[in-house]
Amino acid sequence: MQYLWVFLIGGLVCMLGEVLIITTKITSARILVCFVLIGVVLQAVNLFEPLCAFAKAGINVPIIGFGASLAKGAIGAVKSYGLIGAFTGGLQATAGGIAAAIAFAFIFSLICKSKTK
């Protein structure tokens, strides 16, 4: 049952991206930016946690989850360390993802060539 919800909500979120592509012709960079900002806002107004408890990976795997952890990190760090937390918290919380993406991209770029279509 849990998996069904993950599939449905994850699918719906992605379909929303496709709707944006079809209706506004925006490119993938802008779509990613939109969804990250949606995530930040959802977390800022405390809506992300209840959504996440329900949809799990369905909302965490889309880039919305990335935006939410940025905001969550910043908010949490502000509460524990004060003002400096606003600057350190966001990247700290998402460091794993960013570092992984950069590291894997770098390694594969050393090994592989781009192929024509």
Binding site: G10, G11, V13, C14, M15, L16, G17, E18, V19, L20, I21, S28, A29, I31, L32, F35, V61, P62, I63, G65, F66, G97, A100, A101, I102, F104, A105, F106, F108, S109, L110, C112, K113, S114
Partner: peptide, 28 residues
């Protein structure tokens, strides 16, 4: 899949990896 593979975190990873691989010929 369009949005189906752009919106998940995998799309983010793809958007970092693809230029990294594409532009390797201009040096590391």
């Amino acid at each position: 899949a369009g949005g189906g593979s752009i919106v998940p975190i995998t799309g983010f990873s793809n958007s970092i990896s693809s230029p990294a691989i594409e532009f390797k010929h201009e040096g590391i």
